[in-house]
Design a protein around this nucleic acid. Structure first.
Lengths: 127, 127, 127, 127
DNA sequence: GTGGTCTAGACCACT
DNA sequence: GTGGTCTAGACCACG
């Protein structure tokens, strides 16, 4: 089974952390289209969080088209659909990249350090 | 004078958007150490937000050491000191880079697209 | 429940008085790591101050690492970490000690009186 | 002549820093009763601060009875008068001592370190 | 003029 | 229920 790591002290909402990790597993291939996700009760128990928090994460992901619910059966990973326009995609990525670059500059990191780090993360997720 | 772009509907808190843009200007060199920032009232009026929202953005930036306030005079950009450890820096950058990579994968962007975008943002901020 | 004493006429900002008392309780052991603080609304009502004033005190303490907020749950005392350098610590303590000594001299207190008072306060907080 | 050290970045108001240093010199004996203080214009120029800031420091000190103005002659150090009651004195010193103790605890300083530091400062000011 | 604190009250996000 | 953000507007402290 998949392993989820939740840090309630991180400042990032728990449901957001969950979403991010599921997306990460889907992007990296650890979760394939058609795979079933853990049930809400099961996952809530495993992570010691409120079931409503899992519900929120799952519904957001369903809204984004990353997973689908099959009534009475559970939640399943889709082939990731994404109906954003190309310019919207570029906007999002530019925003994230800028945030990365600005923080790096503020911390005094070098160009090469940043590139290496990005390279490492890309390799785990993009082909 | 500097130009700030605030979108109150973006979901990102206004004070956060302001902080990000000021950091960006400081990192890119548009704001140099010693430069004075717009006064709270002036900026609040220009952006049509409440002065206390600007106060919050400025105080947070002061906490982070990006700017200093001189009572009765104004807010000024510092020569940024940063006391984070190398591992802490790496953690922050890896987190941001992963977020970027995962979103890119989810949206179906290619490796090269991501690299190009990162390259572009880095160029504006790091030498 | 903890008791807080606020004097709105003292010239010391209310949020500062609150911070000082919470730090005192944390240092003296009346507040242990993991303990939950009174909720913002509850404390605001009890002290007859505006909730945003409590928010400010709590956020500053969070910045200092004395407490952490868990969204939707409450504010909790941390096991205090402190990342200041030894020389920085010395500087802070010397500044406070000098202030104490100078005021004492100005008021005509004796060496022994000051030492006794310091001794008393140390005993409540340091082992 | 006396040397004054002003740090406009410290967060402590300039007029307050000035007051503290004059009190310190008076307490340590560097300024004796009857000694004349620098003129407002002279001091403002030497410290590169606004003359009104010096005016404020001097009037506060006069209010506290630490110095007196002799019309047309200048400001002079008094034999420090203090009309506070004993309990008021104790309150002030306890407040300062507590602040010192709490900060020390928060920073993880030891009892002995604090005592040594207090001892050092007392020696410069009290007999 | 500048920044700093506080109030009264609304609305949102998280669990 | 919890904390987080924002508005409208007042008053104080500093230079």
């Amino acid at each position: 089974m998949l392993h989820f790591q939740i840090d309630p002290h991180s400042g990032i909402p728990v449901y957001r952390q969950l979403m991010d990790q599921i997306k990460y597993y889907a992007a990296s291939g650890a979760l394939q289209p058609g795979n079933q996700l853990p049930s809400i009760r099961e996952l809530a128990k495993a992570l010691s969080v409120n079931p409503t928090t899992i519900v929120k994460a799952y519904s957001e992901l369903e809204h984004e088209g990353v997973i689908v619910s099959k009534h009475g059966k559970g939640m399943f990973v889709t082939g990731q659909a994404n109906d954003m326009t190309d310019t919207a995609i570029h906007d999002v990525l530019h925003r994230l990249a800028r945030q990365l670059a600005v923080e790096a500059a503020q911390m005094g990191a070098t160009r090469e350090q940043v590139k290496t780090i990005v390279e490492e993360e890309i390799n785990q997720v993009l082909k």
